[in-house]
Amino acid sequence: MASQGTKRSYEQMETDGERQNATEIRASVGKMIDGIGRFYIQMCTELKLSDYEGRLIQNSLTIERMVLSAFDERRNKYLEEHPSAGKDPKKTGGPIYKRVDRKWMRELVLYDKEEIRRIWRQANNGDDATAGLTHMMIWHSNLNDTTYQRTRALVRTGMDPRMCSLMQGSTLPRRSGAAGAAVKGVGTMVMELIRMIKRGINDRNFWRGENGRKTRSAYERMCNILKGKFQTAAQRAMMDQVRESRNPGNAEIEDLIFLARSALILRGSVAHKSCLPACVYGPAVASGYDFEKEGYSLVGIDPFKLLQNSQVYSLIRPNENPAHKSQLVWMACNSAAFEDLRVLSFIRGTKVSPRGKLSTRGVQIASNENMDAMESSTLELRSRYWAIRTRSGGNTNQQRASAGQISVQPAFSVQRNLPFDKPTIMAAFTGNTEGRTSDMRAEIIRMMEGAKPEEMSFQGRGVFELSDERAANPIVPSFDMSNEGSYFFGDNAEEYDN
């Protein structure tokens, strides 16, 4: 993207840094990872977990959730003011799984939030270390993106479920800051804005008074975040219109849905970061690795190297396929839920299948599930090659597409044709070009129609051997075009429920 120079890199967003050079960025990201790792080690000690239990991804998720809940100030305040039966607002906890007599047992633990905050700050040299908290939120978000298709949420806001490739980060909490905003897809931002506008339509006082002023500035800020994701002048001009509207209503909703559809071809720039579970960072720190000293990046080879040398386990339900569970977590670790499966298959070195073909449910185990038949197995999170994460949407291309997802959002900077089903997408653009945004709409449609099938995206960008740390010898991959490109292809993934 041309304006790259004016933006802070995501590592800076990730670490609240002012302008830093590459070495400083690597050190501050490393410091953040160190903090998460030290916190995780301490929690495993508190909970008396064995090494194996500490490497269980379900335990990692519970521990991450506990610290996120302990620092969720708004919710904590709300819980104190609106006490609900049987919930102690000062405590947080969740299921911890232990191996007892050759069987997995679930144990519900409860801790004072104050105590968890103390352990977290102690692991982070006394700081609140917001960057580390956001990092864990993005890992949870990436896992949700890989596990669930947001059909219901899309339909509720009037969008087409086939636009799911635009929904990265749709389950990120509001408090995820600049680093969170960077990884949100165009569809996620559109959905947040539509929800806001709908509230304004239904509630006369939404934009009024002292609160209304705050609401208005939040609305304009979200519009600017979305505008910054678009790469064409016409899309940005249309966002200006939406932002400046005196009284946002149905016309703005129409414009936003139009823009979301246009992003299936004229893709937005959305950041991709490899955020790993805390149970990967903990053992690495415990083994003596100093992330701050060595430096770390979320968008280069580092996460690949770390996963190459990590042992992570997962509980497996009786009829689940461990290899499929591994694929789910591998995609989440690489922030690749909406990437082209052919690119992923090449990088991973084994075939990556669409969601609907995987015999696996989510990673988390519900409290009512029976533990008797639970097994555990090693997650295979290694890769054959590594590639640089991208934040450009890439230019655009036609490809055989599917009944489910009709476009992709690249996660890796790797040369390819970008699949999208042009006739299906263009069919949504018939007729409606009147109104105050008509010239911009016409211009956007013209650009979409001009998108050429034979153009290559990320020209000359390749993948790298894991021994090639400096990215000196790019390998331009070859793809098996007979395979499906979309992950949520004609899909039956479970729906995400809060």
Rank of each mutant, 00 (worst) to 15 (best):
D160N: 12
L298T: 02
M239E: 06
S478A: 00
L379M: 15
Y52I: 04
S376W: 11
L56H: 13
H140Q: 14
R152Q: 13
L379N: 10
P410W: 00
E434Q: 14
C275S: 14
A218Y: 04
E254R: 05
E443H: 07
E294Y: 06
N250W: 09
M374F: 05
D255C: 03
G295K: 06
Y97Q: 13
R461G: 07
G200Q: 08
V408S: 12
R106N: 08
M32R: 03
V312G: 03
V476M: 08
N368L: 09
A451K: 08
S457L: 15
D421Y: 10
A428H: 14
T360F: 12
V285L: 12
F338E: 01
V29E: 04
N473P: 00
F230E: 14
L315E: 05
G180D: 11
N76S: 04
E449A: 07
K229A: 09
H135A: 10
G228C: 04
F346C: 12
V476N: 01
W139M: 11
V352W: 06
E14H: 01
M238Y: 01
I201Q: 05
A237Y: 00
S326I: 13
E469D: 13
K229C: 08
L307D: 05
S314K: 04
V414Y: 00
Q149F: 08
M222P: 00
I36G: 08
G126Y: 01
I57D: 07
N417A: 03
E454R: 00
I253K: 05
K98N: 14
M196F: 08
Q4P: 00
A428W: 02
E11Q: 09
G54R: 10
A123P: 08
D88Q: 11
C44N: 13
S392E: 05
T130H: 14
S402T: 15
T171S: 03
S269R: 05
P453Y: 01
L264D: 02
I265C: 13
R470T: 00
N370V: 11
L193C: 09
V242Q: 10
L259K: 00
S482Q: 02
M136H: 06
G169L: 07
S9E: 01
L266N: 01
E484N: 03
Q235H: 06
Q364K: 05
R461N: 02
D112M: 06
K452C: 03
N309K: 15
G35M: 07
I425Y: 02
Y78A: 09
S353N: 02
K31V: 05
Q42T: 03
L143V: 08
T396E: 00
G126T: 12
N124W: 12
S28R: 13
A271D: 02
K198T: 11
R26K: 15
R174E: 10
A27V: 15
M13F: 04
I475C: 08
G35S: 15
P248E: 08
E192P: 05
A233Q: 07
E81N: 12
S141N: 06
I425P: 00
N21L: 14
M239D: 08
Y281I: 10
L307N: 01
P248F: 01
L341E: 05
R152G: 07
N483A: 01
C164H: 01
Y289C: 11
L256M: 13
R355I: 10
M13L: 03
S262D: 06
N417R: 15
E80S: 10
A129M: 09
F489M: 13
E115S: 08
N76F: 01
N125E: 05
Y40K: 01
D497L: 11
S376Y: 07
A336H: 02
N59Y: 01
N202M: 11
A403L: 09
S457T: 06
V363G: 03
T390A: 01
P303W: 01
M136T: 06
N202G: 10
S353R: 15
S367D: 07
Y487V: 00
P277R: 09
K273I: 07
M440L: 08
I194A: 07
E14A: 03
S9M: 14
T430V: 05
V242D: 11
K422M: 13
G5E: 00
A336M: 03
V186G: 00
R236L: 02
K351R: 13
S69C: 13
C44M: 06
A387W: 05
F489V: 00
W104G: 02
R213M: 08
L358W: 09
L298E: 04
C333Y: 09
R8C: 07
D421H: 15
S413Y: 05
E210G: 11
K113E: 07
R342Q: 12
P423S: 13
R204L: 09
A471N: 01
G295N: 07
D160L: 02
M136F: 10
N250S: 12
Y385V: 13
F479K: 03
L61D: 15
V352E: 09
S274Q: 00
S438R: 01
P410K: 06
T378F: 04
N202K: 11
N334D: 06
D421M: 12
T62D: 03
N59R: 10
T92Y: 01
N417T: 13
R267P: 02
P95A: 14
K184H: 12
G86S: 13
T424R: 01
N321S: 08
H324R: 05
G404F: 13
R8M: 04
E192I: 10
S141H: 09
T360W: 03
E380H: 09
G5T: 13
P277G: 11
I194E: 12
R436D: 11
T151K: 14
S335I: 07
R156K: 09
F464N: 00
D240W: 07
V408D: 03
K214I: 13
M136E: 09
L49G: 04
P283F: 00
E252K: 06
E294F: 04
V408C: 15
Q364R: 01
D340T: 13
R400P: 11
N144E: 06
F479Q: 03
V285C: 10
N397W: 13
P303T: 09
P283M: 09
R216V: 04
G209K: 09
R118I: 13
V312R: 00
S217L: 14
N309C: 02
T6M: 04
R384T: 05
L172E: 05
L381A: 08
Y111L: 09
L143F: 04
F304A: 09
Y313M: 07
K48V: 10
P477S: 01
F230S: 00
Q398T: 00
C333R: 00
S359N: 14
S217H: 01
M238P: 02
E380Y: 10
M191G: 08
A336E: 00
G288P: 03
A284D: 01
A22H: 09
L306H: 05
K87D: 02
R436S: 05
R216T: 14
F206G: 03
L226P: 09
E24T: 10
E192C: 06
G485C: 11
T157F: 00
F258N: 04
D128H: 15
M105C: 15
G356P: 07
S383G: 12
M481T: 02
E339K: 14
A234G: 11
N397R: 15
D203L: 07
D203P: 06
G86D: 00
G5I: 00
P83C: 12
G17I: 11
S478R: 09
I316P: 07
V190W: 00
L143Q: 03
P322D: 12
M191D: 07
L381R: 01
G435F: 10
I316Y: 01
G431F: 15
S262V: 13
G300H: 07
N432I: 06
E254A: 07
A181S: 12
K113T: 07
A271W: 05
A271V: 06
G94E: 13
D127R: 10
A181E: 08
I445Y: 11
P453H: 11
F464L: 04
G93A: 04
E81D: 13
T188L: 06
R19G: 00
N492I: 03
K229D: 04
A387F: 09
G17D: 00
G35Y: 09
P423A: 10
R75K: 15
A251V: 15
A284C: 00
R416E: 12
R384Y: 05
P248W: 10
E443P: 02
A403D: 05
I201K: 07
S245T: 09
D51S: 08
L49P: 11
V270D: 08
Y40F: 05
A442K: 01
T15W: 04
R461A: 14
L341P: 11
S176H: 08
N247I: 06
L358S: 02
L358A: 05
E18C: 07
L56F: 04
R317F: 07
V363Q: 05
P283L: 14
V285H: 15
R317Q: 07
M1Y: 10
S9N: 15
V329P: 06
C333V: 10
V476G: 12
E24N: 02
E254D: 12
R162N: 06
R106I: 09
E220M: 12
L276M: 15
D127P: 03
V352R: 03
E210F: 11
F429P: 04
A401L: 00
G212A: 12
K113L: 08
T62S: 15
D160S: 01
T171E: 11
G349D: 05
R121G: 05
